[in-house]
Amino acid sequence: MSNRVVAGGIWRKLGLGVSVFALVSPAILVFLWMISLSLKNELDNTAYPPVFIPNPPTFSNYIDVFEKNNFLLYFWNSILVTGGAVLIGLLVGVPAGYGIARSKAYRTAIMILIARMTPALSYLIPLFLVFQILGLIGSISALLITHLVITIPIIVWVMIGYFEGIPQELEDAAYVDGATLWQSFRYIALPLARPGMMVGAILAFIFSWNNFVFSVVLGGKNSRTLPSAVYNSLTFEQISWGPLAAAALLVTLPVIVLTVVAQREIVAGLSAGGLKD
């Protein structure tokens, strides 16, 4: 259609090539440097001029992360918190998206949007006090409950959009045939909204997984999620770049893989709602 580059001369191709290079290289630089740091011994990591290609690559940093830093425990914590919050988010968020879309409850929708926009940090003072009274500071359940602040609004928001796109007529027909409201949701709207559930779940997973501040404030020594666990290993132990880079890479790897695999869903979700944490 507007594919005008075909007609372009050598200069245009060159300009395009330079542009692409300039745009993509910062991402490549940071990720490659991360990998490079994680595969080098401490001597090479603090060498100047820097050693770019690990020679020979060492996996000792990764072994370090797993053996000395209880990485598996924090990984499991992250799985529990994020997994639980996404599941509960889907369980209550999908029907809510349906209810709000069908009853055209725009004021509720706006409230959900504002909840999406409010800084995560601002929920923490009241929740911190409540969990303190309940004696839940430093527990997985406190973190899981707090992560609902992230997962529910995003899932509801994405689902409102999806259910609005499903024509009411399909359900009206079933309704005339005597289907209950629940049946028309369960057997008509829900199957059609499955891609939306996928989008909502993926985005909720990513934003919950990446969340840092909840765990900093509410996490205990053994209940931290990965981002704050890695951050704490920075502050309380001697800084060593290799293991730190290895840990950072392991923390972000699941999300990066998900981004690459589910790129289409993420793009759809973000450009429809256009919103992030």
Binding site: L23, N210, P227, W241, A247, Q263
Partner: peptide, 24 residues
């Protein structure tokens, strides 16, 4: 492929990336 690479920073865990920036 290049677009995927370009999009990757967006979803990367901010804390993990911040640690790498600190070293850089």
């Amino acid at each position: 492929v290049l677009r995927t690479v370009f999009i990757m920073p967006m979803m990367a865990t901010p804390v993990a990336v911040a640690l790498v920036w600190t070293m850089m």
